[in-house]
């Protein structure tokens, strides 16, 4: 029961402070996983990869997966509900009181200073993951090649992940 409650609290926090979408959340998820000692970094990166390749928002995919890894089906259910709950409450409030409460100028001002922080968190996520993901020169080549492909050709991320998986299998197996 303790671990389920811990999962709920962690993922509620992730949902509550998850500004800027799935990628910005990676940093939050990682902090929670590390603080609780729930999972190795490598496993976490693998889950993020799977979360990107399967349909749906990265936040749900990773919450369900991590919840399952830590506490089976009840864990998956708990983490998923917890990560959605802040959105559900806050957006309903927004939809009801939107006209009277929100001041677009204030929202703009907050987002103006929040966006650089979101970018910083994404850079941080990339940096900490790379400590485990970049193990040799060849993985550095895959990183550069993937970045070039997505930046210059706008190829869909799924194709890039599939391609690098095939390259990894061929290179590291033979």
């Amino acid at each position: 029961m303790d671990i389920l409650w811990g999962l709920f609290l962690s993922f509620f926090k992730i949902g509550l402070f998850g500004y800027g979408g799935g990628y910005a959340m990676i940093s939050l998820i990682q902090t929670e996983l590390m603080n609780n000692g729930w999972m190795s970094k490598e496993k976490f990166v693998d889950i993020i990869a799977i979360a990107q390749m399967t349909p749906g928002p990265i936040a749900v995919n990773s919450a369900t997966f991590i919840g399952y890894e830590i506490a089976s089906f009840p864990g998956a259910l708990m983490a998923t509900i917890a990560v959605i709950l802040p959105s559900f409450i806050l957006v309903n409030i927004l939809a009801i009181y939107m006209k009277s409460v929100t001041n677009p100028l204030m929202t703009n001002s907050i987002l103006h200073y929040l966006r650089p922080v979101i970018i910083a968190l994404i850079i941080n996520a990339a940096f900490t993951i790379s400590l485990d993901a970049i193990s040799d020169y060849f993985s550095l080549i895959i990183l550069g090649f993937s970045l070039f492909l997505i930046w210059k050709t706008k190829i869909h991320p799924i194709i890039i992940i599939t391609l690098s998986g095939i390259i990894g299998m061929v290179f590291y197996s033979f």
């Binding site: 990869a49 970018i119 992940i161």
Partner: peptide, 21 residues
């Protein structure tokens, strides 16, 4: 081995998300 290849690509996708914003 497949995941060894995928992990650097995930880093690339995350870096690109930052660049994109």
């Amino acid at each position: 081995n497949i995941f060894k290849g995928i992990r650097p690509a995930v880093v690339a996708l995350i870096i690109y998300a930052a660049i994109n914003i």
